[in-house]
Amino acid sequence: MLKEKLQKALERQQLVTIIYMSKLGGITKRRLKILEIRDDKFRAYCYKKHAQRTFFIDQVLAVEPVIKKENEMIE
């Protein structure tokens, strides 16, 4: 189900917010633009790190689309 949400975001070029668990067990919230999905991982531009990063789908705990409101600035 998470992979389908990521795929839709990629197709729509929509920003998403994810909750992600690192290999060491740390949990972070990230705002991403999905660039590519391959097998069990995906590449995205991470607005928190201001760089492209690779994420493993099985370490994503939640995915939500970023809803832009008129005149609202997205960080």
Rank of each mutant, 00 (worst) to 15 (best):
R31F: 10
E4N: 11
I57Y: 01
L61V: 12
D39G: 09
E11H: 07
S22P: 00
E4K: 12
Q7R: 14
L35C: 02
I74K: 05
E36P: 01
Y47M: 09
Q59V: 02
Q7A: 13
Q7I: 04
R12P: 00
R30L: 07
K49D: 09
V16K: 00
L2M: 11
I37D: 08
R30C: 09
V66L: 08
C46I: 06
I37Y: 08
N71P: 00
I27S: 01
K23T: 05
A9E: 07
H50V: 11
G26P: 00
E4F: 05
R12Q: 15
T54C: 02
R31N: 09
T17A: 10
I74S: 12
I57W: 01
K23S: 09
M73G: 02
C46D: 15
A9M: 06
I18Y: 13
E72G: 02
I74Y: 01
R38D: 12
I18S: 07
D39A: 13
E75A: 04
R43N: 06
P65M: 10
I19D: 06
E75R: 04
A62M: 11
L10H: 07
R43P: 03
A44G: 07
L24T: 15
E75N: 03
D40M: 12
G25V: 00
I37L: 11
K29I: 14
L61D: 08
M21S: 10
G25T: 00
Y45Q: 02
I57V: 03
I74N: 04
F55Q: 09
E75P: 04
Y20V: 02
I34Q: 12
L61Y: 08
N71V: 03
V60D: 03
L6N: 12
I37G: 09
N71M: 06
I34R: 12
L15Y: 15
G26H: 11
G26L: 11
T17M: 10
F56S: 09
R38K: 13
E64Y: 13
L6H: 05
A51Q: 15
I34S: 11
R43K: 14
